[in-house]
């Protein structure tokens, strides 16, 4: 269940009205880049590693392992 991949945020689209409903980020998954919703991780910043499922970032991934 729940195939998710972690990638690194390379860019975040600016939100004119500060409404996180539409917040999006460009995420690099080991050489493959995709747009991802940041609506559930508004605190994420460029350079953060995030876990993404069906195009929604769900968790900040700590750098370890």
């Amino acid at each position: 269940m729940c195939l998710a991949a972690s990638g690194t945020i390379v860019a975040i689209t600016p939100q004119p009205d500060g409404d996180s409903l539409w917040l999006r980020a460009r995420v690099d998954f080991g050489g493959v880049r995709q747009w991802v919703s940041l609506a559930c991780l508004p605190q994420a910043r460029v350079g953060d590693q995030v876990l993404v499922h069906v195009g929604l970032a769900l968790s900040l991934v700590e750098h370890e392992l």
Binding site: M1, A39, H53, V54, L58
Partner: peptide, 19 residues
């Protein structure tokens, strides 16, 4: 379909569609 992992994305799309 999906568990609680997938449901938030569906919920978000519902809210966006309504907006």
């Amino acid at each position: 379909v999906g568990f609680e992992t997938t449901a938030p994305a569906t919920a978000l799309v519902v809210l966006q569609a309504c907006r």
